[in-house]
Amino acid sequence: MSNTITFEDFAKIDLRVGTIIEVNDFPKARKPAYQLTIDFGDLGIKKSSAQITTLYKKDELLNRQIVATVNFPKKQIANFMSECLVMGAVTGNDVILLKPEQVVKNGTQVA
């Protein structure tokens, strides 16, 4: 377990639901990854790099809702600017994406 944080620390993290609208291979990434384009509704469209190629095929990801942190600073990964961090459960070397149990409006806040 990591260090204990306060509720105020947790409240700073902006977790939102979005729908993946585009998936591309990312050959310049050091580890196998996809480039994702995600629709967060009123928050707009954001891009993310995700190392999820072992469990997910591109066509399985398209139109899938996910949970992401949308208030991290942008991060340059090779020639790609990642604007959000897709959330997942890490099991060994694999990441299993988190998603809402039911379809919700893009941009819905996760509490």
Score class of each variant (00 low, 15 high):
residue 1 M to A: 15
residue 1 M to H: 10
residue 2 S to L: 13
residue 3 N to T: 12
residue 4 T to L: 14
residue 4 T to W: 12
residue 5 I to L: 13
residue 5 I to H: 10
residue 8 E to T: 13
residue 8 E to M: 10
residue 9 D to W: 07
residue 9 D to M: 07
residue 10 F to K: 09
residue 11 A to D: 11
residue 12 K to G: 04
residue 14 D to Q: 13
residue 14 D to W: 07
residue 15 L to V: 11
residue 15 L to D: 01
residue 15 L to C: 12
residue 16 R to M: 09
residue 17 V to P: 01
residue 17 V to K: 00
residue 18 G to I: 01
residue 18 G to V: 00
residue 21 I to A: 01
residue 22 E to K: 13
residue 22 E to P: 00
residue 23 V to L: 03
residue 25 D to N: 14
residue 26 F to G: 02
residue 26 F to C: 12
residue 27 P to H: 08
residue 27 P to W: 05
residue 29 A to Q: 06
residue 30 R to I: 08
residue 33 A to D: 02
residue 33 A to H: 04
residue 34 Y to M: 03
residue 36 L to R: 00
residue 37 T to G: 00
residue 38 I to M: 03
residue 39 D to M: 06
residue 40 F to S: 06
residue 40 F to Q: 03
residue 40 F to H: 08
residue 41 G to I: 01
residue 41 G to K: 01
residue 41 G to F: 00
residue 42 D to Y: 03
residue 43 L to I: 07
residue 43 L to R: 02
residue 44 G to T: 11
residue 44 G to C: 12
residue 48 S to W: 04
residue 49 S to D: 07
residue 50 A to T: 10
residue 51 Q to A: 11
residue 51 Q to V: 04
residue 52 I to R: 06
residue 52 I to A: 11
residue 53 T to H: 13
residue 54 T to V: 13
residue 55 L to D: 07
residue 55 L to C: 12
residue 55 L to K: 15
residue 55 L to T: 11
residue 55 L to N: 14
residue 56 Y to T: 11
residue 57 K to C: 13
residue 57 K to W: 08
residue 57 K to T: 15
residue 57 K to A: 12
residue 60 E to F: 07
residue 60 E to W: 05
residue 61 L to D: 07
residue 61 L to G: 02
residue 61 L to K: 01
residue 62 L to H: 10
residue 62 L to E: 06
residue 62 L to N: 06
residue 65 Q to E: 08
residue 66 I to F: 05
residue 66 I to W: 01
residue 70 V to D: 04
residue 70 V to R: 01
residue 71 N to L: 10
residue 71 N to R: 09
residue 72 F to M: 12
residue 72 F to W: 12
residue 74 K to P: 06
residue 74 K to D: 14
residue 74 K to F: 09
residue 74 K to A: 15
residue 75 K to T: 10
residue 75 K to F: 04
residue 75 K to I: 05
residue 77 I to K: 07
residue 77 I to L: 15
residue 77 I to S: 06
residue 77 I to N: 11
residue 78 A to E: 11
residue 78 A to T: 10
residue 78 A to D: 11
residue 79 N to S: 14
residue 79 N to I: 09
residue 80 F to S: 04
residue 81 M to V: 15
residue 81 M to L: 14
residue 82 S to T: 11
residue 82 S to R: 04
residue 83 E to S: 04
residue 84 C to Q: 05
residue 84 C to W: 00
residue 85 L to S: 10
residue 86 V to W: 00
residue 88 G to I: 05
residue 88 G to D: 10
residue 89 A to S: 12
residue 90 V to F: 02
residue 90 V to C: 09
residue 90 V to R: 14
residue 91 T to W: 06
residue 91 T to Y: 11
residue 93 N to M: 06
residue 94 D to F: 05
residue 95 V to D: 02
residue 95 V to A: 02
residue 95 V to L: 15
residue 95 V to N: 02
residue 95 V to T: 13
residue 96 I to F: 13
residue 96 I to P: 00
residue 96 I to Y: 10
residue 97 L to S: 06
residue 98 L to V: 05
residue 100 P to V: 09
residue 101 E to T: 15
residue 102 Q to C: 04
residue 102 Q to K: 14
residue 103 V to M: 09
residue 103 V to A: 06
residue 103 V to S: 07
residue 104 V to R: 03
residue 104 V to E: 03
residue 104 V to N: 03
residue 105 K to M: 04
residue 106 N to E: 07
residue 106 N to M: 06
residue 106 N to I: 03
residue 106 N to L: 04
residue 107 G to Q: 02
residue 108 T to P: 01
residue 109 Q to G: 01
residue 110 V to L: 08
